[in-house]
């Protein structure tokens, strides 16, 4: 097994306030995981807003620098300078997909221009036909064709199509890792499953590693192989997705699961808050400074207090 992406003891601390009232906030505390090259998987990061999941994704993409710790890609540190050969090679291997497709694309620019510039930059094409072929290949992977997209502006495509174009754009350079930051939260219900099933087929059919960032436990359960659950920057539980979500152990993970609205008993909604779990997870958070991850016999890691 070769490690593809190694995240080692990564911390990110942001300064807050002015010169006189200097304060810090810890966005990511001691994150640690490894993706294996030979085993493509959907690795999910779950957390509420402010849990540090997007900060972690930005650091993996090299858009932000960890305060301490290291992120390595194929044994080399992720290049954070936006220039040079190393950065170019890294970008060809790790690609992002963002939350809102309507904001990711410039409304005055044709959608195929994005695919084209990615193809020109990363595929070193020798002819126009080669560019078109690269674009078409990527679009076919997401269930579209170049003919459908060519010459269209973002407003001419539906949200689902646009999000698929965003994924196709990332696939043009044949990446090994796709980092999808909340790719379905802005997409309509009837199109959501199309995107989620697409991520699944990227893993199964094309061997792409997907880092799927979400706050939706149900889709995470549906597609992920491994998950980590983050609370205010700290990973509180990590392990095989099915195992963790079916029977979470950390109070915060249990609280998240208890808060998922169930459709089992439609019409007789049970909206009573899980007061004891809220109290328990707050208590764990208050004492989290000296806590550490403990491996369980079933293969998961759970944060526990000394």
């Amino acid at each position: 097994m070769t490690a593809l992406l190694e995240v080692e003891h990564v911390y990110r601390r942001f300064p807050m306030g002015g010169i006189l009232a200097r304060d810090f906030t810890d966005a990511v505390v001691d994150a640690q995981f490894t993706l294996e090259k030979e085993r493509p998987e959907i690795f999910t990061i779950i957390g509420e807003s402010g849990s540090g999941k997007t900060t972690l994704a930005r650091m993996i993409l090299g858009l932000d620098v960890p305060t301490s710790g290291q992120i390595r890609y194929l044994g080399r540190p992720v290049p954070t300078s936006m220039w040079g050969r190393a950065r170019h090679d890294f970008m060809a291997r790790v690609q992002p997909v963002f939350q809102n497709p309507f904001e990711a694309f410039n409304p005055l620019k044709r959608v195929d221009r994005y695919l084209e510039s990615t193809a020109t930059a990363f595929r070193a094409p020798r002819s126009r036909a080669e560019i078109d072929r690269a674009m078409d290949e990527a679009l076919v992977k997401v269930g579209l064709t170049l003919a459908e997209v060519k010459g269209r502006y973002p407003h001419e495509l539906s949200g689902g199509q646009l999000q698929r174009c965003a994924i196709a754009r990332a696939l043009v350079c044949d990446p090994e890792v796709l980092i999808a930051d909340e790719p379905v939260s802005m997409v309509d219900a009837s199109l959501r499953m199309a995107i989620v099933n697409l991520l699944k087929s990227l893993r199964d059919d094309f061997g792409v590693h997907v880092i799927y960032i979400t706050h939706d436990l149900a889709t995470a359960y549906y597609i992920s192989d491994r998950i980590i659950i983050m609370q205010k920057g700290r990973v509180v539980e990590m392990g095989p997705a099915r195992l963790v979500l079916e029977n979470p152990q950390h109070p915060y993970a249990r609280l998240l699961k208890a808060s998922v609205l169930s459709t089992e008993n439609a019409g007789h909604g049970d909206l009573a808050p899980a007061t004891d779990l809220i109290a328990a997870s707050d208590e764990m958070l208050a004492k989290a400074v000296h806590s550490h991850m403990v491996e369980q016999p079933d293969g998961r890691f759970v944060r526990s207090n000394p």
């Binding site: 199109l191 499953m193 099933n197 149900a218 359960y221 549906y222 979500l245 699961k257 459709t263």
Partner: peptide, 15 residues
């Protein structure tokens, strides 16, 4: 198409 925890069957997507 609503995914549920505890159920991993393939969900259909509307074309």
């Amino acid at each position: 198409s609503l995914p549920r925890i505890g159920d991993t069957r393939q969900r259909p997507a509307l074309e």
